[in-house]
Nucleic acid binder design. Structure first.
Length: 411
DNA sequence: GCAAATGATTGTGC
DNA sequence: GCACAATCATTTGC
C-alpha cells in the first residue's frame, strides 16, 4: 500500500505541474467568469453565492466557477460517469481530445469571434498563436493521459504480482483480486478526471485571453481622437452625447458606440480629475472650434443663428462650431468666472484675443457670452459634476435651441 | 525600463 | 441602463 500512496502522490503532483506560462496572470481572468459561464450556459446561481468569482484552487488559478466541472462537488451530486462524460464532451468540443482538427472547430470559432473578425493579418496572427497554445495543451494532455494509463497498468500488474506472492502464504479469492483491481482503477480514473478538469481549465483560460478585449486594446487613431475631443470640448458644459450623436461619432471614428461611451466616460472623469492638465488641450480645441465657426460664418448666414449647434439634428456637424460651449471656454480663459485651474499664459491670452476677434466676426455673439454667466467654469459645478448633466432636458444652453437633445434625455 | 496615457472592465449608486 | 470611480492591461513616448 505504501507504493500505491507513493505513486498516487507522484501522479497528483504531476497533475499540478502544468506549465504556468500557459496561464495568464490572475488579474487577467478576473472578468471571464460571466463570459465563460455564459458561453457554456452555466447559470449564475450554480453553487455558492460567489460562484462566479475567481479563486485559487491548489496550484491552479481558476478564473471562474468550475461548479460544473468540480470533482468534489460533482461526486456529491451526480455519478462520476456523467461528470467524466461532460469533461470528455468539452475536451472534444474544444479540440483537445479526439482527432486533431486545426485547433478545434469550436475553439477556432471562439478565437475568430474573439478577435472580432475585423483585422485580417492581426486576426490570423492571433489565431495561429491560439492554435499553437491549444496544440501545446493538447500535447501535454495526451502525454499525461498516456503516462497515467501506463502507470495504472504497471501498478495493477505490480499489485497482482504481490497478491500472487501472498497467495502462497494465505488463500486469496478471485473476488478479492477483483476488488483490489477495481480500487486501483477507480483511483486512477479519478486522477484522469482531474487531468481532464485541469485541461479544460487550461483551455478556457487560454480562450479567455482571446475573449478579453483589454488584451487587444489598440489606441484610436489620431483622427478619431480629434473628432471625439472636438465634440467633448465643444460640448464641455454637457459632454453627454445623445445616442444619435454617439452613433454619428462612432461612424466617423470607425469605432463602436460603446467605445464612444467608454471614451466619453473616461474623458469626463479624467478631465474632472485634472482640469489643469487638460486646459491646454481645451484651449486648442476651443481655438479650432472658433476657427471653424469663423469659416462657417464666412460661408453662410447660419453663423448668425447660434441656437442650433448642439441640437441632435445637427449631429452631423458637431465637429464644426458649437458656440455655446465655446463661449464658456472663452470665458474660462478670461478668468471671468474665477476658474481655479486655468493658469492662462501669455500665449493662451493671445489665443483668447484671437478667439474674441473670431467670435466678434461671427456676429451677435456678445450676448451669448454674457449669457454664459450661468455656467460654472468648464461646465463643472461645485459638486464636481457637470452642471447640465443633472437636468439636461430642462436646462437649455443659452446658445442652444429648444430642440437640443442630450443623451440624458433618452433615459 | 519606466512613467504617462489610454481604452476597457468592474462594482456601485441612482 | 447609465454614469461614476477605481482599477487593470496595454500602448506610447522618453
Amino acid at each position: 500500500m505504501f507504493l500505491f500512496h507513493l505513486i498516487c502522490a507522484e501522479i497528483f503532483q504531476e497533475a499540478s505541474l502544468w506549465p504556468r506560462h500557459l496561464f495568464p496572470p490572475k488579474s487577467d481572468v478576473r472578468a471571464l467568469g460571466a463570459k465563460l459561464n455564459k458561453h457554456f450556459n452555466v447559470k449564475p446561481g450554480l453553487g455558492s453565492g460567489r460562484s462566479n468569482r475567481s479563486a485559487d484552487v491548489g496550484n491552479f488559478y481558476v478564473p471562474f466557477s468550475f461548479d460544473m466541472l468540480s470533482i468534489r462537488g460533482a461526486q456529491e451530486e451526480e455519478p462520476p460517469d456523467a461528470q467524466l462524460m461532460r469533461l470528455d464532451n468539452m475536451l472534444l468540443a474544444e479540440g483537445v481530445s479526439g482527432p486533431e482538427k486545426g485547433g478545434g472547430s469550436a475553439a477556432a470559432a471562439a478565437a475568430a469571434a474573439a478577435t472580432g473578425g475585423g483585422a485580417g493579418a492581426d486576426n490570423s496572427a492571433e489565431h495561429s498563436d491560439y492554435r499553437a497554445k491549444l496544440s501545446q495543451i493538447r500535447q501535454i494532455y495526451h502525454t499525461e493521459l498516456e503516462k497515467y494509463e501506463q502507470a495504472c497498468n504497471e501498478f495493477t500488474t505490480h499489485v497482482m504480482n504481490l497478491l500472487r506472492e501472498q497467495s502462497r502464504t494465505r488463500p486469496i479469492s478471485p473476488k478479492e483480486i477483483e476488488r483490489m483491481v477495481g480500487i486501483i482503477h477507480r483511483k486512477f480514473s479519478s486522477i484522469q478526471m482531474q487531468l481532464k478538469q485541469s485541461t479544460c481549465e487550461a483551455v478556457m483560460i487560454l480562450r479567455s485571453r482571446f475573449l478579453d478585449a483589454r488584451r487587444k486594446r489598440r489606441n484610436f487613431n489620431k483622427q478619431a481622437t480629434e473628432i471625439l475631443n472636438e465634440y467633448f470640448y465643444s460640448h464641455l458644459s454637457n459632454p453627454y452625447p445623445s445616442e444619435e450623436a454617439k452613433e454619428e461619432l462612432a461612424k466617423k471614428c470607425s469605432i463602436t458606440v460603446s467605445q464612444v461611451s467608454n471614451w466619453f466616460g473616461n474623458k469626463r472623469i479624467r478631465y474632472k480629475k485634472n482640469i489643469g492638465k487638460f486646459q491646454e488641450e481645451a484651449n486648442m480645441y476651443a481655438a479650432r472650434t472658433a476657427v471653424n465657426a469663423a469659416n462657417v460664418s464666412s460661408h453662410g448666414s447660419q453663423a448668425n443663428s447660434p441656437s442650433t449647434p448642439n441640437s441632435a439634428g445637427s449631429a452631423g456637424s458637431f465637429n464644426m462650431s458649437n458656440s455655446g460651449d465655446l463661449f464658456m471656454s472663452v470665458q474660462s480663459l478670461n478668468g471671468d468666472s474665477g476658474y481655479q485651474g486655468a493658469q492662462v499664459g501669455a500665449n493662451v491670452q493671445s489665443q483668447v484675443d484671437t478667439l474674441r476677434h473670431v467670435i466678434n466676426q461671427t456676429g451677435g455673439y456678445s450676448e451669448g457670452l454674457a449669457g454664459t454667466q450661468m455656467y460654472s467654469p468648464q461646465g463643472i459645478n461645485a459638486n464636481g459634476g457637470w452642471q447640465d448633466a443633472a437636468t439636461p432636458s430642462s436646462v437649455t444652453s443659452p446658445t442652444e435651441g429648444p430642440g437640443s437633445v442630450h443623451s440624458d434625455t433618452s433615459n
